[in-house]
Amino acid sequence: MGENREVLIVHGEQAERIPLPHGGGFVLLADGRDTGGALGANRLTLGRGATGARPHYHARSTELFHVLEGVMWFDVDGRTTTVAAGGLVSIPPGVPHAFGAVPDSPAELLSVLTPGVDRFEYFRTLGRIQHGQEPFDSLLKHQERYDVHFLPVGVPARLRADGRDDA
């Protein structure tokens, strides 16, 4: 990865928005290709109690979350904690995690992945999945491409975004 000397400026009205059925959605800010592979960034708004991501890890990237509004729960490597607006969570490569809005609060966060991966199509696919237009399994063949590796069925409920315990 070479030194990126290009300045990226994304005005809010220019950012692509991916609506989600619970009233929230993604705002796509920077893809890996936009930053020379330095980082990727998006905002995520979640309705009350909505899950942001089922249990997964990133093999190559660190993921940073800054909670902008509300309260989020994070399950990181089997330990659950809540983080309110103004808080930050940084998850290194290889560490399993899941997150969502707590039941009584909508939430908004900024997510930054570094090094950056081209993941805008991943978020578009998630939008289609959430709206029932595509099965979740359609993402499984792209785990390496997006550096999002989902934990297998059988993971304890506390790590599963859907709350089922298939162990």
Rank of each mutant, 00 (worst) to 15 (best):
R145L: 06
I9P: 00
E69C: 09
F99D: 10
P115N: 13
E13I: 05
V71C: 13
F123M: 09
L8N: 01
H149F: 14
A84I: 09
G52Q: 06
L140F: 14
H58K: 09
R79Q: 14
A167V: 07
T80M: 12
G87A: 06
R79T: 15
V155G: 03
T114V: 07
S105E: 02
L46E: 06
A85F: 10
E6I: 02
G32R: 09
I18F: 00
E16C: 11
G70Q: 13
P92S: 03
H22K: 09
M72H: 03
A98K: 11
S111Y: 02
G49Y: 04
V67K: 01
R124G: 04
Q14C: 10
G78H: 14
L140P: 07
F150M: 11
I18L: 03
G12P: 01
A41V: 14
R128K: 12
M72P: 04
G132V: 05
P19Q: 11
F74C: 08
M72A: 06
S105N: 08
L20S: 03
Q130D: 06
H131Q: 10
G70I: 14
G23N: 06
V83Y: 00
R54N: 15
N4H: 04
F99T: 05
S111P: 00
G49Q: 07
E121F: 00
G86C: 04
G32A: 15
A15F: 03
V102L: 08
R54V: 08
W73V: 12
S138N: 13
G25E: 06
V76G: 03
H58G: 07
A101W: 05
E6V: 08
G87E: 02
R160Q: 12
G40F: 15
A53M: 08
P55L: 09
G24H: 11
S111H: 02
D75G: 11
F26D: 00
V155C: 07
K141L: 02
P55W: 05
E121N: 13
V27A: 07
S138Q: 09
D77L: 01
H149D: 04
L28K: 10
H11I: 11
L140H: 07
E69T: 12
N42P: 01
N42F: 15
T114D: 07
E3L: 01
V83T: 10
A15I: 12
V7E: 07
P93W: 02
I129Y: 08
A167W: 09
S138H: 11
F26A: 00
G47K: 07
V67G: 04
P106I: 15
